[in-house]
Design a protein around this nucleic acid. Structure first.
Length: 198
DNA sequence: GCGACGATCATCT
DNA sequence: GATGATCGTCGCG
């Protein structure tokens, strides 16, 4: 079942980041269906969060889609090379987002291997936001699109998840000081070999 | 398996 | 002109 707008429009972005663990993400780009189980996420909480692009309501051409309504994609380029896929949450005007950092591949693995330019499937194929976006074919062409469309969408999974298997940890790459540097807003599936780090 | 480091460029100051 | 919500490779062991 496709995740409905109400899922994304919650005010609790950290809760959504946790709830996204175990959900499914799919893309159909260039007529290739690819997707898998979300195993690692990070929450970015709008104005108060020093780690967010929208810290202190910062609003530029790059992060404009963070201000869209929950259920929108925010894609930006990092280090000039890597595309990062975020799920925008909350209502329009509140710049909350969840970075999808890793998935366990399920569908379209051959396509993912080709897009990544590697010879064989490995556990690192979708580990890390840059690798994940590349494998799924995501680029700035998907910035601002709906997560309820035919190009990019998320689904619930019937298989139950043991809540104790979800680990909370500090986010990756927070190069500043203060409480938001080490706040445990990164979530991942304990022991899953497709996560980017431990 | 791990740490160091260079790649590479859109974006913002 | 400086800066990244990163990745792949290399050297080491």
């Amino acid at each position: 079942m496709i995740l409905p707008p109400s899922f994304y429009q919650s005010e609790d972005v950290v809760g959504i980041a946790r709830a996204l663990i175990g959900k499914l993400v799919f893309t159909r780009i260039d007529n290739e269906l690819t997707g898998g189980i979300i195993v690692e996420t990070e929450a970015y909480k709008g104005p108060e969060d020093r780690g967010s692009h929208a810290h202190q309501m910062r609003r530029t051409a790059r992060n404009e889609s963070m201000y869209s309504e929950g259920g929108t994609a925010y894609v930006y380029i990092c280090y000039g090379i890597h595309n990062m896929l975020n799920v925008v949450t909350n209502r329009a005007g509140i710049p909350h987002a969840v970075l999808i950092r890793a998935i366990e591949p399920l569908t379209g693995i051959r396509t993912m291997v080709e897009r990544r330019g590697i010879l064989h499937f490995t556990k690192r194929i979708c580990a890390g936001p840059g690798s994940l976006a590349k494998a799924l074919g995501i680029s700035k062409a998907q910035d601002g699109i709906s997560l309820l469309g035919k190009e990019l969408w998320l689904e619930d999974q019937d298989m139950p998840l043991n809540e104790e298997e979800i680990i909370a940890a500090p986010r990756v790459g927070m190069n500043f000081d203060g409480p938001y540097k080490s706040i445990p807003w990164r979530f991942y599936l304990k022991g899953n070999k497709f996560v980017s780090k431990g």
